[in-house]
Amino acid sequence: MNIMTKTMPVLATQDDAETAILASGLAKQYGEHRAVDGLNLAIAAGRTVALIGHNGAGKTTLMKLILGLIRPSSGELAVLGAQPSIAGLDYRRQIGFLPENVAFHDELTGAQMLRFYANLKGADLAQCTALLERVGLSFAANRRVKTYSKGMRQRLGLAQALLGTPRLLLLDEPTTGLDPNSRREFFSIIRELSRGGATVIISSHILTELEAQTDLVAIMKGGHLVGLGPLDTLRQRADLPVRFQVTCPGAANRIRSAFSDLAPVTTGTDNVTLSCPVAQKMSVLARLVALGTDVTDIDIKHPGLDEIYHHFSPRPADSSEGAA
């Protein structure tokens, strides 16, 4: 395939594992609107990728392209070595998908629903019981789906996505409606699947929870990729400041003047917030320690996924390019 020869974004993957998803100049146009606009992407098999971006950044459209539900307007896309829009039914057997706002036929019970999808996918029916158990729905297996809560539907949705042990799992906003316990359980299922070699793509708005759970972060904006890589790499590229929250009972003003070079912000008389480039982190820390008993506590905050995301994808109003 000629798309292999085109320049692909540099990937910080450690090994030369098989490429699961490869997109080159991929675009999808709806009328005037370019939902996906010249997207380049390469993801090695077995990675767990967080796909983040504003509403309308093109995340769901990208997922539909990967699923082969829609045809690209231009550019090329290869997933698991196939072209999704023309791939045969075998291609779909290797993919699990959890749509945003998953909907089921409400009259069926959870177990019946899952059996229906297992039949379609040609998956082992014995898997259904195990999956319901795995997502914590055994207790409600024989209840009609219409009695299910949002979180229970979401878990049933995850169960159907896991049918047939897919090689690629696409999860669109999977944790909406899940309580913190279910979320933890959810990510442990994803990790398990990932250890088995599956590639997982998760789109989400709740960035903090993705931070610890994914290998790669892909940031989308205006239909193309503005950042892709492990979180640490993105953090370095963004070069966002480290923040120190210093607790210094009664000494806020003294510290403020001592660190006037680091844009200090005081909160009351007991707290000062300082920020500095990552490279200066240790020297600032040493200066703080040298202050002795004035400082009772230091809390160091590294830029999280939230800040990195905002760096790469400022809100449309702040953006110089403007949103597509």
């Binding site: 539900l69 993919i95 909907a103 089921f104 996918k121």
Partner: peptide, 9 residues
């Protein structure tokens, strides 16, 4: 429901 169904084989 159709969106999900169409992702099946």
């Amino acid at each position: 429901c159709m969106l999900l169904l169409l992702t099946y084989p």
